[in-house]
Nucleic acid binder design. Structure first.
Lengths: 398, 398
DNA sequence: TAGAGCCTGGACAACGTTGTCAGATGCGCG
DNA sequence: CGCGCATCTGACAACGTTGTCCAGGCTCTA
C-alpha cells in the first residue's frame, strides 16, 4: 500500500467512484458486428496470461529493497569525501580526473542515483510544473498537454498532470496537492469559478497561468481562444448562407467557454436582426444522450431549425450522428476541429481553435513568470479559424 | 530561469530542437478555405492581449516571495512545539481540541502548506508514479494515460508523465529522471529495445510495468494487446471476402507492435496459401507523406492490391484519404479504432484495441507490485475486437 | 628554500519534515 | 498529600542533498 496518511488522502482525494466521465471510448463508434477473439483466455478477465521465463532477478537476494545507496555510500566506497561525490555527480569543477574516475566507478558499481527529493529540499526549486486539465483523454487536451510538456522540457522541467473531470473540488484538491509537491508553476484549465484558494500559493511564488477559461475571483494570467468571436463568426456564416432558424447546443452555462460561445451566437443573431427563440438553445451536459435529445427536439415540430451550431467537439460528433439519420439536409458548424471532418459527406465546417498553441503560449508565459519575476497578469486571446468544408454551406431546407 | 545544473540538464535532456513529431494537428484536416478573424490583434503573434485590471497583488509588498512558512513558523505563531503542528497537519491523535484550533488558526493565517519534498525525503515513498509514453497528443494514448491516472488517484498517487517521441534515448532520460524523483513506480511504453538501464532501479524497488510493447533485455511485467492475433484476424477477414492481393502498411519494424502485426498479416496469408509479394508490404515512418506514397505505389502498376491492412490509427487515417481519391473501390481494415469511423462512406472496419484497458491493467499491476511485494513478471495480453463497418467487406474490384 | 597562491578535498550546517522518546501536566484514588 | 497513570507536548535526530568554509598539499616564483 502506498503510504498516504489521512490528511494526505484528504488532499489528493480518494473519492469513492472513479467516474471516468466521457472518455473518447464513448465517442468511438461501436456499431456494426463485433467478433471477439477467443484463444486460451482467462475466464474472469478475458486476458491471456503468460508467465515470463524467469523470476524477477534478485527478488530473494541479499540486496536491500528500497534502500538505495546514498552519496555517503559512494563516498565510502570511493574513499573520498561526501562533497566530492556531489561535485562529480553535478559536474562541478575542482575534481582531479583520477578522483572523478574512482567516484564514477563507485557510482556505477552501487547503482547510485541522486535523490532529487533531497536536492529539491535543499535547492528550493523542483524543476517540475503541474497541469490541471479536465480530461486527459479528450482529444482536445492531448495536444495542449503535449505542448505544455514540450515547453517544460525545453526548460528542463517535468510535467505532473491530473484530470479534474470538470469537478471544481477535484480541481482544487489537485492544484493544492501539486503545490504541496512544490511545483514551480501551475497551468490550470479551471473547472470551478473561485480560485481564491490559490492566493497564498501565488503569493508564495508559484507561477500560475490559466488556460482555455479565465480564473475566478483572482487576477491571473489567462490564455484562451476567442470563443465569443469564433462562435459569432460561425453563426454569421450560417446566416450568410440563408439560415434564420439556427439551433445552438452547448456545454453547461457555468463553463466559461460555453457561456461565451452562446454570447457569440446571440450576437450574430442580433446583428442579423433575428429574434432568438428559447427552443433553439440547449445548454447542459455534453454526453451523447442529452445532446441527441436536444438535437432531435430542435429538428422536430412545425418550425424545425435548418442549421445547428455545435458548442464543442463532443457535441459536434453527436450532432453529426443525429443529422446522418435525418432525411432533410441540415447545416452544421461546430466549434473545435475534428479528425476526419473533411472526409465525411458533407465535410464538417468548423470553428477551429489551436489547442497546442493554447498550451504552448500558456507554458511559455509560465516560464516567463518564473524567469523574469513579476508582470501584470494578462489575458491573451488566440484567434479561431473558420474552416469551411461543406456542412456549413448547405442552404436551408424548409 | 529554472535552476538546472549541467548534470541535471543531462538527465532531463535539454535537446535543441523540440520536434513535436506528429501531433494530431497533422492529422486534422486543413482542407477547405480558411477565414482568419482579425480584430485588434497583436502584429507579431496574432494574439489579442488585454491587460487585466489590477496589478498582481502583493507584487511589491513586503511578503517574501518563495519563502514559505514552515511548521516551525506555525509552531512559533501558535505557541506550540514543532511536532504538535506536524500532528495537527497529519491528523494524528493526541492533540487537545483547543491546541488544534490554535494551530489551525496559525496555519490559515500564514497560508502554510506542508512541503511534500521534505515529507518524501523523510518517509521514503513519494506517492507518485511516472508514465513514459510516446506522444501524449496521440489519440491512442489519451485514454491510456487517463486510465493510469485514475488508478493512481484511487491509490492516492499523482502521475508524472513524459513523451519519448519514439526516441529510445529520450525514453531513458525520462525514465531515469523519474527515478531520480523517486517515483514509486514506472509505467513505460517503450521506445527502445534495451532496458537494462532500469535494472538498478528495479532492484532498488521501483515498480515497473511495460505497456503496449514488451521490455527489451530484462524481465518485467508487460501488458499488451494481441497484436499478432488481431492483425491475423483482420487480414483473414479480408481474405474471407475474396481478397488475395492485400497490402500491409505499418510502422517501423523495430517497433514491437508493428513487427507483431506484420507477423499476423503473414500468418493469415500463409494460412490461406497466398504467397506474399514484397511490393505489398511497406514498413516505415507513419507520417502522412510516407504512408501516402506507400499506398499509392501499392495501388498502381499492373497488379494493384485490392485491399489494404493499415498497421495503426495514423496509417489508417492517411490511407482513408488516399482511398477517397481512388476511382476503384479498395477494401480497408485498420488496426486501432478511430473516431467517426462509422460515419464515413463506407464505414471503416477496424481491429480495435482498448487503450484504456491497457492503461488500467498496467497501473493496477503496478500497484499490486507495490502492495504485495514480489511476484514473477507476467505478460498479460488483452484481446482485440474486429469491428465490421463496411470498408473491410468490400469485394475485390479487379 | 621560503612564501604566496592555487587547486583539491572534506567537515559541517542547513533545507522541512517525521519518528522516537522523554518530560510535563492533570486527574483520580488510596 | 502522594502516587500512579493517562494524556498531551516538545526536544532531538534523521532523511540525502548542497553551500560554505577551511585545511592541506601542490606548484611557481623570488
Amino acid at each position: 500500500m502506498l503510504d498516504a496518511t489521512s490528511s494526505y488522502k484528504l488532499l489528493i482525494g480518494a473519492s469513492p467512484g472513479c467516474t471516468t466521465s466521457c472518455t473518447p471510448a464513448h465517442h468511438l463508434a461501436r456499431t456494426g458486428s463485433v467478433a471477439e477473439r477467443d484463444d486460451k483466455t482467462d475466464d474472469r478477465t478475458g486476458h491471456r496470461i503468460v508467465p515470463e521465463t524467469t523470476r524477477r532477478t534478485d527478488s530473494l537476494s541479499g540486496t536491500r529493497y528500497g534502500n538505495r545507496p546514498t552519496m555517503k555510500d559512494v563516498a565510502a566506497r570511493a574513499g573520498v569525501g561526501l562533497k566530492t561525490v556531489s561535485r562529480v555527480v553535478n559536474g562541478e569543477p575542482g575534481v582531479t580526473p583520477d578522483t572523478e574516475r574512482r567516484v564514477q566507478e563507485a557510482i556505477d558499481a552501487l547503482g547510485f542515483r541522486r535523490n532529487d527529493s533531497a536536492r529539491v529540499l535543499r535547492k528550493g526549486r523542483t524543476a517540475s510544473i503541474g497541469l490541471v486539465l479536465e480530461d486527459l483523454a479528450d482529444p482536445f487536451y492531448g495536444p495542449l498537454s503535449r505542448a505544455v510538456e514540450e515547453v517544460a522540457r525545453a526548460h528542463g522541467a517535468l510535467l505532473i498532470n491530473g484530470s479534474s473531470a470538470e469537478d471544481p473540488e477535484r480541481e482544487q484538491e489537485l492544484a493544492l496537492a501539486l503545490c504541496a509537491r512544490r511545483v514551480d508553476g501551475l497551468v490550470i484549465i479551471p473547472a470551478g469559478d473561485d480560485h481564491r484558494y490559490l492566493e497564498p500559493e501565488i503569493r508564495a511564488g508559484v507561477a500560475t497561468v490559466f488556460v482555455d477559461r479565465p480564473a475566478g475571483r483572482i487576477d491571473a494570467d489567462v490564455v484562451l481562444s476567442d470563443n465569443y468571436g469564433g462562435a459569432r463568426d460561425g453563426v454569421a456564416h450560417l446566416i450568410a448562407h440563408g439560415h434564420r432558424r439556427i439551433g445552438f447546443i452547448g456545454d453547461m452555462p457555468r463553463i466559461h467557454t460555453a457561456a461565451e460561445r452562446l454570447r457569440g451566437y446571440r450576437a450574430a443573431m442580433e446583428d442579423a436582426g433575428i429574434p432568438v427563440e428559447d427552443a433553439w438553445m440547449s445548454l447542459g451536459q455534453t454526453n451523447p444522450e442529452r445532446v441527441r435529445r436536444a438535437a432531435e427536439e430542435m429538428l422536430s415540430g412545425p418550425e424545425p431549425v435548418t442549421a445547428i451550431f455545435a458548442g464543442n467537439n463532443r457535441v459536434t460528433v453527436t450532432v453529426i450522428r443525429v443529422l446522418a439519420e435525418q432525411s432533410r439536409r441540415v447545416a452544421l458548424v461546430g466549434f473545435d476541429d475534428i479528425e476526419l471532418a473533411d472526409l465525411l459527406q458533407p465535410g464538417v465546417t468548423v470553428v477551429a481553435q489551436d489547442s497546442a498553441a493554447l498550451g504552448r503560449t500558456a507554458a511559455e508565459r509560465l516560464f516567463r513568470q518564473l524567469d523574469g519575476g513579476l508582470v501584470a497578469p494578462e489575458r491573451i486571446e488566440l484567434p479561431t479559424r473558420l474552416i469551411t468544408r461543406g456542412s456549413g454551406e448547405l442552404p436551408p431546407a424548409d
